[in-house]
Structures are given as structure tokens and as C-alpha cells.
Design a protein around this nucleic acid. Sequence first.
DNA 1: CGCCGTCTTGACCGACGGGTCAAGTATCGG
DNA 2: CCGATACTTGACCCGTCGGTCAAGACGGCG
Lengths: 208, 208
Amino acid sequence: MSSADTERLDTADERQHTEHGLERKRQLLDAAGELFADRGYSATRIADICTAAGVAKGLFYWYFPTKGALFAELVRTMRLRLRRAQGTAMDPTADAVTRIADGAEASVRFMADHAAYFALLDVERSDPEVADVLAEGAGVYLDDVRRIVEDGQRSGTIADAPSDLIAVGVLGAVSSFSNSYRNGRLGDDITVDDLARFVRRWVINALR
Amino acid sequence: MSSADTERLDTADERQHTEHGLERKRQLLDAAGELFADRGYSATRIADICTAAGVAKGLFYWYFPTKGALFAELVRTMRLRLRRAQGTAMDPTADAVTRIADGAEASVRFMADHAAYFALLDVERSDPEVADVLAEGAGVYLDDVRRIVEDGQRSGTIADAPSDLIAVGVLGAVSSFSNSYRNGRLGDDITVDDLARFVRRWVINALR
DNA sequence: CGCCGTCTTGACCGACGGGTCAAGTATCGG
DNA sequence: CCGATACTTGACCCGTCGGTCAAGACGGCG
């Protein structure tokens, strides 16, 4: 038996984790998410993440091959969760406008629920170390929305204009409102429900 | 005469620059703007800026006390220019909706003209070293728009809803569309004029 | 020409932080 | 009780990068 079999994973990122190991990993992910959110990616030291999670620095590399890998995992997890939230909020049999409005509303609520995480997506977009992962998902939502917009245009419920422009507008509205809400630019007297309702109305208004 | 007079400016950021000196400074500012835009603030090394500007690293500190200071100057210059562009585009005697639409259109054109610069504002929002400068101006535009919105609501031309929400929506639309245009998400077949017209229509539609 | 202030250089310094490593501890199946 | 495998530690290494500095070059003015 050659020694290659075991060596394959020595340095690799795929390790055999126990239940407890996965829990640790999640702790690190959580700590990192919070720190990234309010200090930025590059301003967050691996040592900070470990301190926040209450472990030694060396342990970081047991779970992640590099800082960027953790970031990528964080982003992908988040993206998955958001899409799931959108999916369950949208009734596939409803008309295009309703579907978009439902998706937008769900996104706003989701982003408000996970404010710490979403401050991230909004940040460090250009750091080459992370740009790829971020860009990778940027077009996905756009495509989702554009498809529905075109659907709506075929049935005449959505105004006739370049579908990608409209999609950008919808996505932009969701993220703008969510961002402003998150960093308190809207004041404390407005609730998530208020915001969600307003965005729904705003989007519907923009589509016609 | 005490020696304090000359010493005051030794380390300070205010230096006596000749015409040629100011030109140099502008070169550095330009080079930095471009590099920041496509690599991010923290990923851009001072050495990179100097290389791009074709000067030695030491010279950087003849013109700027620190990296952050250059950034701050860049941002403030940009903000000033944008506000000026908006100001000249908006007829103070026109009604609120027209004023907002004009301002939005002008902003879109301006951002397209200065794409390299504006990739910046969108980036590294959370880097503590630069967060202050960025946040400092964030509320300004919001206030500008909100005032006009409230004006329009008084005269009944703008829908009755929290004015800050509406202002966030307008600002968000402008930046979303500009961003998408800048990084090519809208395809090459769309021109700035198309975009500007579309945003105008979008904003007007959203206000009523 | 000689002085002075502006401008320019590139070698150098220091710390900061990502990543490594050798030495453990904890747990579990046999 | 033994060995294997997952986990944990903190000292250490080392490249990188912001910032300094001493030595000049250039240009105008008396």
C-alpha cells in the first residue's frame, strides 16, 4: 500500500470531522462573520477570530486552509440560506409581479434577520482575495429576477423595458433598503415589517 | 524669532507646493484612484501607487502624511465634484419631482464619467481607517433628497410615505444602476444615455 | 556663483499578521 | 491498556508593507 492514500488529505481542506469538530467550525464561522461585518475582511485578523471563538490561533488551520477559504464558505452558506428563504416565499403558480414582490419582501426580512452577515456582502467587494466568490454569486440573483421579469412582460403585467435593467433595479432596491435599515440610517422607529411592506410596495410600483 | 515657526509645518500635511508640485500630487491622486478602484484600498500598496505614477516611494510622503490621508482627500474631492454636478443640473425653480429626476440623471452621468473613482465609494466601507470619511458624507445626500421629497409631498406631487425611506430608494436606485453599469453587468449594448433616461423614468415612477 | 526651498530617490526599519510546527490532550474502539 | 485519530496549543518563522531617513538633484533668486 503506497503512502499516497493518507497523504492526500494531510494538507487538504477536507478533513474528517466529528460532531464536536463541526460545532467548533461553526463557532469560528460565526465569530468571523461578526468580526468581518463590523471591521471588514482585511481588517479582521485570524487571531481576532480565534480570540472571539475562544481558541488558539493554530486551531484555525485545522478547520480552514486559509482565511479566504473561511470567507468563501461563509458567503456560500449565506447565499444558500437566502435562496432557500426566497424559494419558500415565492409561490410558483402566482403571477410574475407577485412572485418578485414576495421574493423581495422575503429577502428584506432575511437580511434584517442576518444583519451581521449581510454587512459583509456589501463590503470588500474589490479585495482580489474575495472578489471571485462575491462576483460568482452576483449574477445568479440577477438571472433569477430577469427570468421572472421576462415572464411578466410576456403576459403584459410588467412594463416593457430591458429586463436586465429592471432586474438590477429590483435587486438594488432590496439591498439599498436593507443596507440603510441595517446601519440605522432609517431611525429606530421603523420596524422590519414597515420596511418589508414599503419595499414590496416600492417594487410593485416600479414594475408596472 | 523662535524656531517654532518653521517647525510647525515640518511634519505637518500642509506644505508649500509649487505648480509642479501640485501636478505631481494630482498624478498620485489619479494613480491611487485607479488602483483603489480595481484592487481595493487595503490591497493597494503605496509602492504600487508610486510605481503607477512613476515616482519613488519616498516621494509619496512628501505630498501625503499617510495612506489614509490620500484616501480622504480623494473622497472629499470627488464628493465636491459630484455635488457641483448635481447643483448645476437642478433648476431650483422646478418642481420637486423634476429636481430629483434631474439630480439623479446627472449623478448617473457623473458616475459613469468617473467610473474608476466611484468603484471606490462602493468599496471598503468598513475598513476602520476609512469608514469615517465615507460615513461622513453618507448622510449628506440623503438629507438633500429628503428635503426635496418633503417639499414635493407638501405640494402633493410625491406620494405620502416616510420621506427618508423614499430618499433611500432614490439614492439606492442611482447607485445600483451606476454600479451595474460600471462593472459591465448590463452588457455593452447599453449607452450612458439609455441608462440615464431609464433611471430618470424609474425614479419618477417610484415617486408618485 | 552660492544659498535655499522644493522636490526626488531608494535603502532601510519595525511591526504586523498569515501561516507552520512540534508537542501535546481527549476520546474511542478493540 | 494500547493505538489511532480528532483536536488543541502557543511559540515561532518570515514575507510584506507602511513609514522614515540621509543624501542628493533641480531651479530660481540675489
